[in-house]
């Protein structure tokens, strides 16, 4: 059997795979360039061709930046699971995967989400599950970086990151929460043509499908929904994301224990939506109460940063809900 497709639940020789990652950092830089072929070039997904016009700023990073980012990834994961990573904020990391709200991005190391890691999204209560799923979708939209031209999201791979959004969940959750709906995704900024939907019979199959997708070069981001993730599969997923530079998000149930080996754990609650610009009785842009319960590379033990953000349908980005404080007075004045 090939090393990469064992049953996700069987015990794995983790040490061996960690060694593979580590050995890349130990050898000289030229060695790591040669091994980088195995990794998916993660910036624009591509290296600019030699004779192409210079890439536009922020759209496609240069080769040297990509390699730096790759090194940064190695450094971040060399002492995987032992303590906070030691990466300096000066290193420009290839993928600019942010929420778009500077205040919230500031909670994260490097002011952005780690593309080579497993993230977890948990609803605060059972009723917030749909908000957690929506937050995962919005992060995927941010990851693809589409729709910057406004109007409607463009599916051309030239404007955003190539690759698929792979959405895996057991059939039971799909029935409970409703199936993904293309026209609604368009409005969120996600092109349904870029979505690969996997509905499995069992949670174990979901984990397997996630790992396969991460290991494939096809995925730009992998999202899985499960009630809980056991320790071993979680570590496998985390290692796969680190090896392939493809981020993965787990949406888990509110009450289940936190997933291991994650980079960050978000707690999501629905919040009353923003005021509608024209109709005070209608719901406006959706708002979420975000709490970053845990994040690797930040101070351990303080109060978890929390804030209410809203999704801006026009700019396809999050922004801090400005009028949270005087919502009560606004409501009073409206009445």
């Amino acid at each position: 059997m090939d090393k990469e497709h064992r049953d996700p639940l069987s015990p794995q020789p983790l040490a061996k795979r960690i060694f593979v990652v580590r050995s890349n950092t130990d050898v000289s830089a030229s060695k790591s360039i040669s091994t980088s072929k195995r990794m998916r070039p993660s910036g624009g997904g591509a290296v600019a061709p030699f004779f192409a016009p210079p890439p536009a700023p922020h759209s496609r990073p240069t080769r040297i930046e990509q390699l730096r980012a790759l090194l940064a990834t190695f450094e971040r994961h060399q002492d995987f699971g032992r303590g906070p990573a030691t990466d300096s904020p000066e290193i420009a990391v290839c993928a600019d995967w942010t929420l778009g709200a500077p205040e919230v991005d500031g909670w994260l190391p490097d002011r952005q989400l780690d593309v080579a890691s497993l993230g977890e999204i948990k609803p605060e209560t059972y009723n917030d599950a749909s908000a957690a799923l929506a937050f995962a979708l919005l992060l995927a939209a941010r990851r693809l970086g589409m729709g910057w031209t406004g109007g409607r999201p463009s599916s051309a791979s030239s404007t955003g990151r190539p690759g698929l959004v792979v959405w895996c969940w057991p059939h039971r959750l799909a029935r409970e929460n409703g199936g993904l709906y293309g026209p609604g995704l368009v409005r969120l900024g996600l092109d349904p043509a870029r979505l690969l939907l996997v509905e499995t019979a069992t949670p174990a199959e979901t984990l397997w499908a996630m790992e396969e997708s991460i290991n494939s070069e096809a995925a730009a981001i992998v999202i899985g929904c499960l009630d809980a993730v056991p320790l071993t599969p979680a570590r496998r997923l985390a290692l796969a994301t680190a090896t392939h530079c493809t981020p993965a998000l787990m949406v888990t149930a509110a009450r289940s224990p936190p997933t291991a080996a994650t980079f960050a754990r978000w707690r999501i609650a629905t919040a009353a939506s923003a005021p509608h610009p024209f109709d005070p009785a209608a719901p406006g842009d959706p708002r979420f109460k975000l709490t970053l319960e845990r994040c690797r590379g930040t101070a351990v033990g303080g109060v978890a940063p929390s804030s209410v953000v809203e999704w801006n349908y026009d700019a396809y980005r999050f922004r801090l809900a400005a009028d949270v404080g005087d919502r009560a007075s606004a409501a009073a004045s409206r009445a």
Partner: peptide, 8 residues
């Protein structure tokens, strides 16, 4: 508006 998750 259309929902992102449709119950069918």
């Amino acid at each position: 508006r259309r929902p992102a998750f449709l119950l069918d």
